[in-house]
């Protein structure tokens, strides 16, 4: 094969690759495009035939959203709930993962397996006992209550992921620090955590997205705007003074307000996520 033919083939492969990627990205972005478009489309143009790709732009759907639900309260609740769930789950998972990776206890691998298997339990079957527990603790309709539940749900996956990352941190580094007089927290803070920043960042992002999008727990355990989150509002928005019909414009506006923070978060942390995911897959 001559250099010229190799170059041509290489160019053709690249074109094909970019074309495929372009098609994939296009298909993946269509729902987002449609959601943004619907959120800005006047109600009576939403179902026009043929579809109107450049409708009159209106903020009515966002105004309806803010009018129909206590938007700011729900948004703040969502942020607090997601951030607190992440904090709780990541701190506990990190410590648990460290324990599983570093402390040799009989049956610890079985314990880890049980923890991982608990992820297979459908969340819906846990809501009744959880409700009774939260009620006993006086935590129904509180951010604290849903945070404890969400945090505990996020822990098994986080532990499972983090254990392998902890094991990859050379134990000799910790031993050296201990010999130099470092205490447990110092070892964790100065040795282990810096070595695991990409992994922790990845878990933080994944857990944040999971908590942010969670509907079940806020739906079941939150009854007032004191603890309801934005996801619950999707069950509350309406089109008119009627139970019939879906307010697609308002739902799209809600979708936009929920997706935009996630897009910003993921784009900001993109480098860490990719780094964390790829590190976890390499031995």
């Amino acid at each position: 094969m001559t250099a010229e033919s190799y170059r041509r083939r290489n160019t053709a492969v690249r074109i094909l690759l970019y074309l495929s990627l372009g098609i994939f990205v296009f298909i993946a972005l269509i729902p987002f495009y449609w959601m943004f478009l619907a959120s800005l489309t006047p109600r009576h143009q939403l179902f026009s035939i043929p579809p109107n790709y450049f409708p009159d732009v209106t903020a009515d759907n966002f105004a309806a959203l803010i009018h129909q639900i206590p938007f700011i309260a729900y948004l703040v609740n969502s942020l607090v709930f997601s951030a607190a769930s992440v904090l709780l789950s990541v701190i506990l998972s990190f410590l648990a993962a460290y324990g599983f990776a570093r402390i040799e206890v009989k049956g610890s691998s079985i314990l880890l397996l049980i923890l991982v298997l608990s992820m297979a339990l459908p969340p819906i079957v846990t809501v009744v006992p959880l409700f009774q527990i939260l009620r006993t603790l006086g935590l129904i309709d509180t951010i604290t209550g849903i945070t404890l539940v969400m945090g505990s749900v996020l822990i098994p996956f986080s532990v499972w992921v983090l254990v392998s990352f902890v094991k990859r941190v050379p134990v000799e580094m910790e031993e050296a620090a201990t010999i130099d007089g470092a205490r447990l927290f110092q070892v964790l803070w100065y040795i282990v955590i810096p070595a695991m920043v990409p992994a922790l960042a990845t878990i933080i992002i994944i857990n944040f997205i999971n908590a942010w999008n969670n509907l079940l727990f806020p739906l079941v355990f939150s009854h007032t705007e004191a603890s309801k989150t934005l996801t619950v509002s999707i069950t509350e928005v309406f089109q008119a003074r009627t139970p019939y019909g879906r307010p697609w414009g308002v739902i799209s506006a809600l979708g936009v307000t929920m997706v935009v923070p996630m897009i910003i978060l993921v784009l900001t942390a993109q480098k860490w996520i990719v780094s964390g995911l790829t590190r976890g897959s390499i031995k």
Binding site: Y98, L137, G138, T144, L148, L184
Partner: peptide, 27 residues
């Protein structure tokens, strides 16, 4: 290597904190 007792002590502190936290949320 970290001592088991130290690690368990950390867990106990966190568990105690988790018990105190609900009281703040009670209405």
């Amino acid at each position: 290597m970290i001592h088991k007792k130290a690690f368990l002590a950390v867990l106990c502190i966190l568990a105690a904190a988790a018990m105190v936290l609900p009281a703040a949320g009670a209405r």
